[in-house]
Every structure is written in C-alpha cells, then in structure tokens.
C-alpha cells in the first residue's frame, strides 16, 4: 500500500537528486519512485512477477537485478555509446506489462526472464547518477540500485502474499490503472508526429 501510495503521489519527474539536501545515496534511492514512468514500469513488472508465483518471481527479480546492474555499468562507463532510453520506452513497457496484469496472464519462465532483462536494461541505461567525485558517484549508484531492487522486491513479495480472491482482483485493478495511464500518455507522445504524418498523407493523396 505504501508503494502504491508513493506511485499515486509522485513528485516532479527528475533525472537526478529529487530533493535538495538528501545527499547522493538517499537522493538516488528515491529515483525509481519519484520518476513516474520508472515507478509505473517497475510496479507493473513487480505485480506481474507476483502473479506468476514464487519460483518464477524469484527468477524474474534476479534477472532484473543482473540486467539492471549490467545496464547501469554500461551507462556509467560509457559502454552504451550513443544508445539512450526515452520515456516512451518506459510507457510502452508499462502498457504491455500492465495489460498482462489486467488479463492475469500466466506465462513461461523464459517470458518472465525476458521481461525482467528488458526492464532492468532500460532502467539501468537511464540517466546515470549526476554527481561529482568518485565517492558520491558510488553512493548514487548504490542508492539507485537499492531503490530499484527494494521497490521490486517489496511489491513482488506483497503481491505473492495476496491469496484472497478480492485481493487478486485488486492487483488486476491496479494493473488496469497502469495500463490506462500508459496508454493515455503514450497516445499524447505520438499524437504530434501522428497528426503530422496524417496531414502529410492527406496532402499527398488529395493535394
């Protein structure tokens, strides 16, 4: 419930330390919660893990942690090159996984691991901790890693613990909210280019 409340009451999206004076560790610890699209994707993925049962959820969390570490390492060392993640990627991920939560889909372990790897990579490849000095950078990386894994593990564990019928339905309701928000914002993101393409097509055909 605390996690859901944090997602429901997000602060302004910020790639870096969201609250002045918190320091490198705590500032980055809050990163996955205060950046709405990250929080939404992580919540959807954790809910899906929880729906899959204990063993698949465990594999999913481990895969997500490893992929996140890999992505973070690539982003921090510059090994990712010119590749950069954008908000629509998170929204698309939240849309697909949120849809799976709504439908309460039971998928193979390989699918769970694939979703975990994709999620871990795009979150890890997100903006690297913007701190100066090796110490602060290490604290920032530690903070964001702790935040991502903590959020995922807590929501996954909580979802697994829900055994009553209405509780499982409540998980699907939250999934439907994530699906709805993702679809709306994604539609707005593509609305501009889509309208331009439509106008160009109309001009080409009838102009």
């Amino acid at each position: 419930m605390v996690s859901l409340a944090l997602v429901a009451w997000p602060l302004q999206a910020s790639a870096h330390s969201p609250i002045e004076g918190l320091g490198a560790f705590y500032g980055h610890l809050l990163h996955p919660v205060t950046v709405q699209s990250h929080a939404m994707l992580l919540t959807a993925v954790a809910l899906m893990f929880g729906q899959q049962g204990r063993s698949k959820a465990r594999a999913g969390v481990i895969a997500l942690g490893l992929a996140f570490a890999g992505g973070l390492a690539a982003a921090t060392t510059g090994a990712s090159g010119t590749f950069s993640v954008s908000e629509p990627m998170f929204l698309l991920g939240a849309l697909v996984v949120g849809g799976a939560v709504v439908l309460d889909l039971r998928v193979a372990a390989a699918v769970v691991v694939s979703v975990s790897v994709a999620t871990g990579l795009i979150i890890g490849l997100g903006p690297a901790p913007a701190t100066t000095g090796m110490r602060d950078k290490a604290l920032g990386i530690g903070g964001v890693a702790t935040g991502v894994l903590y959020l995922t593990i807590v929501i996954t564990g909580f979802t697994i613990s829900l055994q009553k019928h209405w509780q499982k339905i409540a998980v699907r309701v939250v999934g439907s909210w994530i699906f709805a928000v993702s679809m709306l914002v994604l539609a707005q993101t593509i609305a501009g280019p889509a309208k331009r393409v439509a106008a160009a097509a109309v001009g080409f055909l009838f102009g």
Binding site: F179, A180, M183, Q188, I190, A191
Partner: peptide
Amino acid sequence: IWLLPIVFPTVMAIGGAIGILG
C-alpha cells in the same frame, strides 16, 4: 462487481487515446 471496474478504466484509456489523437 470485480469485472466492471477493471473493464471501465481499460476501455476508457482506449477512448482517451482516440480523443488525444484528435
């Protein structure tokens, strides 16, 4: 009692996307 509150936001989002796309 459970199905309708799941159906509504899910389908509402599709209507919302149609509205956003103009």
